[in-house]
């Protein structure tokens, strides 16, 4: 009884914290306290968080090395822009279409390739990501390599915050559900879980589709914030960037992915002012962090797993 009451108290507390963050940032934006530079980096940060958390579902929790996340981001970005800019539907329709298209792409790619193991899966997903990019480069209806220009800026802080919350909520819930336990068992020992009667392929596909869907969402938010999308932006190096965030944060730790995405975004922004040695510093950071924290910043632990789980509706 006592326990339950405390749960509700902390639940309320954490909702308040989230609401406070949202309101403070919203106020800072409307009152002009946050200049454009910080707003842009805030948007990048949130988009990176969504990408990292969703890839972490595939790479971290399911243990399937995917190197094609930028491809799904591209699918989402293009699908949403076709809906809003070309066909004139409202933004929400664009977002939904982005999720749908990316999830479908995830399903089409996941079903055949997830039978592959380890590095063979990595290469297949990488190849698919590149195929998506090259195909986009050759479709004249979306302007080929020049990309689509003049996308209205519909991505605002409420959308960003909502999408980020939704992503984390769904991923945490999924991981803490019975599906999640099955997914994690696949990572820990695929053969053993198969023997336990778990249909490993279908769980892998499930995680893959969810991961792809949120990458698509991130792509849609990206497209409607940065004015232009072109295929080259979504090449395999972009996939590597996302992977870096996931591993830096700690495979299988959602909070880790969030922290690492924030860290990488801030690092990238700070290094803008050191053009000559920017990438050298970035590379050294990766190497040094990995040498001293090979399990990532968070390992596979969560920050207050229980409280987070409860906030975002998971079981204990």
């Amino acid at each position: 009884m006592q326990e339950k009451k405390r749960n509700w108290l902390s639940f309320g507390g954490e909702v308040l914290i989230l609401a406070a963050i949202f309101t403070i940032v919203q106020y800072a934006i409307t009152a002009g306290l946050l200049n454009q530079y910080y707003q842009i980096n805030l948007a990048s940060m949130v988009i990176n968080i969504i990408l990292a958390v969703s890839l972490n579902l595939i790479n971290g929790f399911t243990g399937q090395l995917s190197l094609g996340h930028a491809g799904f981001m591209a699918v989402g970005a293009y699908a949403s822009v076709i809906m809003t800019n070309m066909l004139g539907y409202p933004f929400i329709a664009g977002l939904l279409m982005a999720c749908l298209a990316a999830a479908l792409a995830g399903f089409i790619i996941g079903v055949p390739t997830l039978r592959l193991k380890g590095d063979y899966l990595a290469i297949a997903t990488l190849a698919f990501g590149e195929v998506i990019r090259v195909v986009l480069q050759n479709i004249d209806a979306v302007n080929g390599p020049a990309g689509i220009v003049g996308i209205s800026r519909l991505t605002t802080w409420p959308w960003l915050f909502g999408a980020m919350l939704l992503t984390i909520l769904v991923v945490v819930n999924l991981v803490n559900s019975s599906y999640g336990r099955a997914i994690i068992s696949v990572r820990e020992d695929e053969i053993a879980s198969e023997l336990m009667g778990i249909n490993t392929t279908s769980y892998k596909v499930l995680a893959f589709v969810f991961g792809a869907m949120f990458a698509g969402l991130a792509g849609a938010l990206y497209a409607h914030y940065f004015y232009i999308i072109k295929p080259e932006t979504f090449n395999f190096l972009k996939s590597f960037d996302i992977l870096v965030m996931v591993v830096l944060g700690g495979l299988g730790s959602t909070t880790g992915a969030v922290i690492a995405a924030m860290f990488i975004t801030v690092l990238t922004a700070v290094l803008q002012s050191f053009p000559a040695i920017r990438m050298i510093l970035y590379a050294l950071t990766l190497i040094i962090v990995m040498i001293y924290r090979p399990q990532g910043l968070m390992g596979n632990r969560e920050l207050s797993r229980q409280t987070f789980g409860r906030i975002w509706g998971g079981r204990k």
Binding site: I21, A28, L34, N35, Y38, M262, L303, S304, Q306, T307
Partner: peptide, 26 residues
């Protein structure tokens, strides 16, 4: 659990701070 909560708060603070950091610096 309590220490976990503290950590959670810490993350949130980092988040807000990293957004607001250097606001006056521009």
């Amino acid at each position: 659990r309590r220490s976990g909560r503290k950590l959670a708060m810490l993350v949130m603070m980092t988040f807000v701070l990293s957004i607001l950091a250097g606001c006056g610096g521009g």
